[in-house]
Design a protein around this nucleic acid. Sequence first.
DNA 1: CTTCATTTATGACTATAGTCAGTTTATATC
DNA 2: GATATAAACTGACTATAGTCATAAATGAAG
Lengths: 229, 229
Amino acid sequence: MRFRRQVKVSDGRRAQSKAMIARTVGDRGPAPGRRERNKQEKRARIVAAARRLFEEKGFAQTTTLEIAEAADIGTGTLFLYARSKEDLLVMVFKDEMLETAMAAFSRLRPDDPLLEQLMQVFAAMLSHHERDRDLAKILLKEIMFPTNDDRLGDIGELMEAIFAELGRLLTAAKASGSLRAEFDPRLVAEILFSNYFMDLLEWLRGLWSRQQLLDRLRRQLAITIDGLR
Amino acid sequence: MRFRRQVKVSDGRRAQSKAMIARTVGDRGPAPGRRERNKQEKRARIVAAARRLFEEKGFAQTTTLEIAEAADIGTGTLFLYARSKEDLLVMVFKDEMLETAMAAFSRLRPDDPLLEQLMQVFAAMLSHHERDRDLAKILLKEIMFPTNDDRLGDIGELMEAIFAELGRLLTAAKASGSLRAEFDPRLVAEILFSNYFMDLLEWLRGLWSRQQLLDRLRRQLAITIDGLR
DNA sequence: CTTCATTTATGACTATAGTCAGTTTATATC
DNA sequence: GATATAAACTGACTATAGTCATAAATGAAG
């Protein structure tokens, strides 16, 4: 990965082309213009091709050339949409990750004890990563250490959504009287999540089995929760 | 980084050569053998060369060929000592990292409040990484996601040392009566450290200034500590 | 319909991390 | 000190991620 002087194709939501600006500002005209449509189609083809190949052959075994061919674009074009092979992985899986997390939150039964609710959310996230540990490893690596600063927005969005939901759980617990009233739910959400995340990384490093991880995590979360009573 | 079928040169402490085994088992003979001496010298040259170049030119700007030349070895030889360029970085800086941490612990004044002691330790670690954020980023990335499983031992050792020291602080606080007596210091150490670590990563991603990071961290640690009173 | 400017696409190319078959060097054994 | 075995070393080589000069496509303006 070498230095890149300039980004040429802007990434979907952050696009600043005249067309995009016009559209954003209010004219809800019929078609978003052929240019934008082509770009989105191409982007979709790239993501689909990359997802298929990464899942079928694994990350390391898939070359960027293969992806470009499968998406029917030139080799150089690929790097207008993703800055690195790893960045491509984030492009492919970030939405799914957010959806998994949100789905887990929406499945919760509000009357369960807080600790159970937290465990269910984190266990769901864990199961998601468990489907393909190798991909998960590279994906999380890239999320924590992005090669593409344009992706910081996506990452922030993901974290923000999780913290907000966790904060909601905490506020609910506070309201129901099971927790003290003076703490900042956002900060506690961050504490709980860091805990999950570090455990997750250790699990990825192969230090523990799923069950060991969950046991540890439960005990850690319990300490934090108990402290707030 | 491709698949490696076999490790040929074993890494220092984990070496299994006859010489090493003999030496380990008890015969404290005079010289460790020319072979072993050569290996250690070479290893030292590699580490020294890598450190100098990484610090002078930066990680990305330094090629493995340059390092090999500076260490006066063949290009292939380098990869008998480190499995990847990133792994080399860990080889170079892991001891220093451990020393920084231990030095920070030893500088503590036992009568300071627990929170102050924790902040001093974490602030010292932060200052260490602050000297070269780019190197720190790649170093921590490699520590959390090692490309060389032989390095898991080193990483475990580092974490273990930190957790042990943190545990000691907690036990002391418990003994002095400022904390409840029933919690497991090890688990709490892990909670506190995860917290520091996630904040550190966010700082590396450029989300906050040093001061903002420290403020956040202090408030988070305070929540955990307060819960243990 | 013709410019003209801008965005997007392309693939031949480059740089370099990491490999491996063959060689050298050290040690053990007689 | 000759021979055999194993460990360590080597550099020419390969694979591939990422670049960049050039070309094509699009849309705006007249």
